[in-house]
Protein backbone atom coordinates (compact mmCIF):
# COMPACT_ATOMS: atom_id res chain seq x y z
CA UNK A 1 0.00 0.00 0.00
CA UNK A 2 1.15 3.55 -0.64
CA UNK A 3 1.24 6.17 2.11
CA UNK A 4 -2.24 7.71 1.63
CA UNK A 5 -3.83 4.26 1.62
CA UNK A 6 -1.99 3.26 4.79
CA UNK A 7 -2.98 6.45 6.58
CA UNK A 8 -6.59 6.15 5.44
CA UNK A 9 -6.99 2.68 6.87
CA UNK A 10 -9.77 3.08 9.41
CA UNK A 11 -9.94 2.01 13.02
CA UNK A 12 -12.48 -0.84 13.13
CA UNK A 13 -14.20 -1.56 16.43
CA UNK A 14 -17.21 -3.80 16.76
CA UNK A 15 -17.63 -3.93 12.99
CA UNK A 16 -17.77 -0.15 12.56
CA UNK A 17 -15.07 2.01 10.97
CA UNK A 18 -13.71 5.26 12.35
CA UNK A 19 -11.33 7.78 10.81
CA UNK A 20 -10.15 9.22 14.10
CA UNK A 21 -7.93 7.16 16.38
CA UNK A 22 -8.43 9.53 19.28
CA UNK A 23 -11.28 8.76 21.68
CA UNK A 24 -12.10 11.35 24.29
CA UNK A 25 -14.02 11.64 27.52
CA UNK A 26 -16.54 14.35 28.29
CA UNK A 27 -15.82 14.90 32.00
CA UNK A 28 -14.12 17.72 33.93
CA UNK A 29 -14.89 20.54 31.48
CA UNK A 30 -16.08 24.00 32.59
CA UNK A 31 -19.40 23.64 30.78
CA UNK A 32 -21.03 21.78 27.90
CA UNK A 33 -20.03 24.43 25.37
CA UNK A 34 -16.36 23.95 26.24
CA UNK A 35 -16.83 20.17 26.14
CA UNK A 36 -18.24 20.37 22.62
CA UNK A 37 -15.59 22.81 21.39
CA UNK A 38 -12.75 20.64 22.74
CA UNK A 39 -14.22 17.50 21.21
CA UNK A 40 -14.60 19.23 17.86
CA UNK A 41 -10.95 20.34 18.06
CA UNK A 42 -9.89 16.76 18.87
CA UNK A 43 -11.66 15.32 15.84
CA UNK A 44 -12.84 12.41 18.00
CA UNK A 45 -15.76 10.35 16.72
CA UNK A 46 -16.17 8.14 19.79
CA UNK A 47 -16.82 9.93 23.07
CA UNK A 48 -17.30 8.47 26.51
CA UNK A 49 -20.09 9.42 28.91
CA UNK A 50 -20.99 8.36 32.45
CA UNK A 51 -24.42 7.19 33.61
CA UNK A 52 -25.76 8.89 36.74
CA UNK A 53 -28.98 9.48 38.63
CA UNK A 54 -30.79 12.59 37.45
CA UNK A 55 -31.13 15.31 40.11
CA UNK A 56 -34.86 15.20 40.73
CA UNK A 57 -36.40 18.64 40.48
CA UNK A 58 -33.08 20.43 40.33
CA UNK A 59 -32.38 20.68 36.64
CA UNK A 60 -35.70 21.23 34.93
CA UNK A 61 -35.12 22.91 31.60
CA UNK A 62 -31.34 22.75 31.92
CA UNK A 63 -29.52 21.60 28.81
CA UNK A 64 -28.14 18.08 28.91
CA UNK A 65 -24.83 16.70 27.72
CA UNK A 66 -26.37 14.77 24.83
CA UNK A 67 -27.99 17.93 23.47
CA UNK A 68 -24.47 19.27 22.93
CA UNK A 69 -23.14 15.92 21.77
CA UNK A 70 -25.99 14.19 19.95
CA UNK A 71 -25.73 10.46 19.24
CA UNK A 72 -26.52 11.31 15.61
CA UNK A 73 -23.11 13.02 15.36
CA UNK A 74 -20.95 10.91 17.66
CA UNK A 75 -20.61 7.32 18.74
CA UNK A 76 -21.49 7.54 22.43
CA UNK A 77 -19.48 5.15 24.57
CA UNK A 78 -21.14 4.79 27.97
CA UNK A 79 -18.76 3.85 30.77
CA UNK A 80 -19.05 2.21 34.18
CA UNK A 81 -16.90 4.74 36.01
CA UNK A 82 -17.35 4.48 39.75
CA UNK A 83 -18.48 0.84 39.66
CA UNK A 84 -16.60 -1.48 42.01
CA UNK A 85 -18.42 -4.72 41.28
CA UNK A 86 -19.33 -6.68 38.17
CA UNK A 87 -22.98 -6.48 39.21
CA UNK A 88 -23.01 -2.67 39.32
CA UNK A 89 -21.13 -2.41 36.03
CA UNK A 90 -23.52 -4.74 34.18
CA UNK A 91 -26.52 -2.94 35.66
CA UNK A 92 -25.14 0.45 34.62
CA UNK A 93 -24.50 -0.64 31.05
CA UNK A 94 -27.94 -2.20 30.66
CA UNK A 95 -29.40 1.17 31.68
CA UNK A 96 -27.05 2.85 29.19
CA UNK A 97 -28.24 0.56 26.41
CA UNK A 98 -31.84 1.48 27.17
CA UNK A 99 -30.93 5.17 27.31
CA UNK A 100 -29.17 4.97 23.93
CA UNK A 101 -31.89 3.01 22.12
CA UNK A 102 -30.17 -0.37 22.10
CA UNK A 103 -26.65 0.86 21.37
CA UNK A 104 -24.30 -1.98 22.35
CA UNK A 105 -20.74 -0.55 22.22
CA UNK A 106 -19.66 0.16 25.79
CA UNK A 107 -16.64 0.87 27.94
CA UNK A 108 -16.31 -1.49 30.89
CA UNK A 109 -14.25 -0.39 33.86
CA UNK A 110 -14.50 -1.93 37.29
CA UNK A 111 -12.37 -0.10 39.79
CA UNK A 112 -10.61 -1.61 42.78
CA UNK A 113 -10.56 1.48 44.99
CA UNK A 114 -11.12 5.22 44.80
CA UNK A 115 -7.57 6.13 45.64
CA UNK A 116 -5.71 4.60 42.71
CA UNK A 117 -8.69 3.82 40.42
CA UNK A 118 -6.73 0.71 39.49
CA UNK A 119 -8.87 -1.89 37.67
CA UNK A 120 -10.30 -4.74 39.71
CA UNK A 121 -9.51 -7.49 37.23
CA UNK A 122 -11.43 -10.41 38.82
CA UNK A 123 -14.64 -8.34 38.77
CA UNK A 124 -13.80 -6.99 35.30
CA UNK A 125 -13.57 -10.53 33.93
CA UNK A 126 -16.92 -11.53 35.46
CA UNK A 127 -18.61 -8.42 34.04
CA UNK A 128 -17.00 -8.85 30.61
CA UNK A 129 -18.31 -12.43 30.33
CA UNK A 130 -21.82 -11.41 31.30
CA UNK A 131 -21.88 -8.41 28.96
CA UNK A 132 -20.53 -10.32 25.96
CA UNK A 133 -23.12 -13.06 26.56
CA UNK A 134 -25.81 -10.35 26.65
CA UNK A 135 -24.79 -9.01 23.23
CA UNK A 136 -22.68 -6.03 24.25
CA UNK A 137 -19.56 -5.00 22.35
CA UNK A 138 -17.17 -4.46 25.21
CA UNK A 139 -14.19 -2.14 25.17
CA UNK A 140 -12.49 -2.99 28.41
CA UNK A 141 -10.25 -0.93 30.67
CA UNK A 142 -7.63 -3.24 32.17
CA UNK A 143 -4.23 -3.52 33.76
CA UNK A 144 -1.24 -3.63 31.42
CA UNK A 145 -0.88 -7.35 32.09
CA UNK A 146 -0.61 -9.30 28.82
CA UNK A 147 -2.22 -12.37 30.38
CA UNK A 148 -5.32 -10.45 31.50
CA UNK A 149 -5.53 -8.78 28.10
CA UNK A 150 -5.44 -12.17 26.41
CA UNK A 151 -8.15 -13.56 28.68
CA UNK A 152 -10.38 -10.57 27.94
CA UNK A 153 -9.84 -11.09 24.25
CA UNK A 154 -10.76 -14.77 24.59
CA UNK A 155 -13.94 -13.78 26.42
CA UNK A 156 -14.89 -11.86 23.29
CA UNK A 157 -14.19 -8.22 24.13
CA UNK A 158 -14.20 -5.86 21.12
CA UNK A 159 -11.10 -4.00 22.29
CA UNK A 160 -8.66 -4.15 25.19
CA UNK A 161 -7.68 -0.88 26.84
CA UNK A 162 -4.71 -1.18 29.18
CA UNK A 163 -3.81 1.80 31.32
CA UNK A 164 -0.69 3.81 30.53
CA UNK A 165 -0.74 4.96 34.16
CA UNK A 166 -3.45 5.76 36.72
CA UNK A 167 -6.66 7.46 35.56
CA UNK A 168 -6.26 11.22 35.67
CA UNK A 169 -2.60 11.02 36.73
CA UNK A 170 -1.06 12.34 33.51
CA UNK A 171 2.01 10.20 34.18
CA UNK A 172 2.29 8.83 30.64
CA UNK A 173 3.27 5.28 29.66
CA UNK A 174 4.95 3.72 32.68
CA UNK A 175 5.43 0.21 31.36
CA UNK A 176 6.09 0.27 27.62
CA UNK A 177 7.41 -3.29 27.69
CA UNK A 178 4.15 -4.81 28.89
CA UNK A 179 2.21 -2.64 26.47
CA UNK A 180 4.37 -3.85 23.61
CA UNK A 181 3.66 -7.49 24.45
CA UNK A 182 -0.09 -6.78 24.55
CA UNK A 183 0.05 -5.00 21.18
CA UNK A 184 2.14 -7.77 19.60
CA UNK A 185 -0.17 -10.55 20.74
CA UNK A 186 -3.62 -8.98 20.42
CA UNK A 187 -5.98 -9.70 17.55
CA UNK A 188 -8.50 -7.08 18.67
CA UNK A 189 -7.76 -3.32 18.77
CA UNK A 190 -5.53 -2.20 21.65
CA UNK A 191 -6.17 1.27 23.03
CA UNK A 192 -4.19 3.01 25.71
CA UNK A 193 -6.78 4.29 28.16
CA UNK A 194 -5.83 6.44 31.12
CA UNK A 195 -2.63 8.17 32.12
CA UNK A 196 -1.86 10.22 29.01
CA UNK A 197 -0.53 13.60 30.13
CA UNK A 198 0.53 15.43 27.03
CA UNK A 199 0.84 15.10 23.27
CA UNK A 200 4.12 13.18 23.28
CA UNK A 201 2.57 10.45 25.47
CA UNK A 202 -0.15 9.93 22.87
CA UNK A 203 2.39 9.95 20.05
CA UNK A 204 4.54 7.35 21.82
CA UNK A 205 1.51 5.07 22.34
CA UNK A 206 0.65 5.29 18.65
CA UNK A 207 4.27 4.82 17.54
CA UNK A 208 4.33 1.61 19.55
CA UNK A 209 1.42 0.35 17.47
CA UNK A 210 -1.60 1.07 19.61
CA UNK A 211 -4.71 1.19 17.45
CA UNK A 212 -6.05 4.25 19.24
CA UNK A 213 -5.79 6.30 22.41
CA UNK A 214 -8.52 7.27 24.89
CA UNK A 215 -8.11 10.28 27.15
CA UNK A 216 -10.10 12.83 29.13
CA UNK A 217 -8.18 14.73 31.79
CA UNK A 218 -5.15 15.49 29.61
CA UNK A 219 -7.41 17.65 27.45
CA UNK A 220 -10.01 18.85 29.96
CA UNK A 221 -7.47 19.92 32.59
CA UNK A 222 -4.95 21.54 30.24
CA UNK A 223 -4.76 25.32 30.72
CA UNK A 224 -6.21 25.63 27.24
CA UNK A 225 -8.32 22.52 26.55
CA UNK A 226 -9.09 23.43 22.93
CA UNK A 227 -5.43 23.86 22.06
CA UNK A 228 -4.53 20.61 23.82
CA UNK A 229 -7.34 18.82 21.96
CA UNK A 230 -5.82 20.02 18.70
CA UNK A 231 -2.35 18.96 19.86
CA UNK A 232 -3.63 15.48 20.75
CA UNK A 233 -5.27 15.10 17.36
CA UNK A 234 -1.95 15.84 15.67
CA UNK A 235 0.03 13.66 18.08
CA UNK A 236 -2.19 10.65 17.45
CA UNK A 237 -1.98 11.19 13.69
CA UNK A 238 1.80 11.73 13.78
CA UNK A 239 2.32 8.69 15.99
CA UNK A 240 0.19 6.55 13.72
CA UNK A 241 2.06 7.66 10.61
CA UNK A 242 5.42 7.05 12.28
CA UNK A 243 4.29 3.55 13.25
CA UNK A 244 3.13 2.82 9.70
CA UNK A 245 6.33 4.29 8.27
CA UNK A 246 8.46 2.00 10.46
CA UNK A 247 11.16 3.72 12.44
CA UNK A 248 14.86 3.43 11.58
CA UNK A 249 16.83 0.89 13.59
CA UNK A 250 18.35 2.23 16.78
CA UNK A 251 22.17 2.27 16.83
CA UNK A 252 23.10 2.63 20.42
CA UNK A 253 26.91 2.91 20.20
CA UNK A 254 27.58 3.96 16.61
CA UNK A 255 26.86 7.36 15.05
CA UNK A 256 26.12 7.43 11.34
CA UNK A 257 26.73 10.65 9.37
CA UNK A 258 23.88 11.90 7.22
CA UNK A 259 26.23 13.79 4.90
CA UNK A 260 28.70 12.20 2.41
CA UNK A 261 32.02 11.11 3.90
CA UNK A 262 33.69 11.49 0.45
CA UNK A 263 34.83 14.81 -1.10
CA UNK A 264 35.58 16.65 2.09
CA UNK A 265 37.96 19.63 1.54
CA UNK A 266 40.39 18.51 4.22
Amino acid sequence: MNAPELIAEPLVIGGRSYRSRLLVGTGKYRDFAETRAAIDASGAEIITVAIRRVNIGQNAGEPSLLEYLPPSQFTILPNTAGCHTAKDAVRTLRLARELLDGHSLVKLEVLANDETLFPNMPETLVAAKELVADGFQVMVYCTDDPVQARVLEEIGCAAVMPLASLIGSGMGILNPWNLEIIIDRATVPVLVDAGIGTASDAAVAMEMGCDAVLMNTAIAKAKNPLLMASAMKKAVEAGREAFLAGRMPKKIYQGSPSSPTEGKIS
Binding site: A50, S64, L65
Partner: peptide, 8 residues
Protein backbone atom coordinates in the same frame (compact mmCIF):
# COMPACT_ATOMS: atom_id res chain seq x y z
CA UNK B 1 -33.95 7.51 36.71
CA UNK B 2 -30.58 7.96 35.00
CA UNK B 3 -29.14 10.22 32.33
CA UNK B 4 -25.80 10.54 30.54
CA UNK B 5 -23.34 12.99 32.11
CA UNK B 6 -19.76 14.01 31.37
CA UNK B 7 -17.27 11.25 32.09
CA UNK B 8 -14.08 9.66 30.89
Amino acid sequence: VVIAVGGG
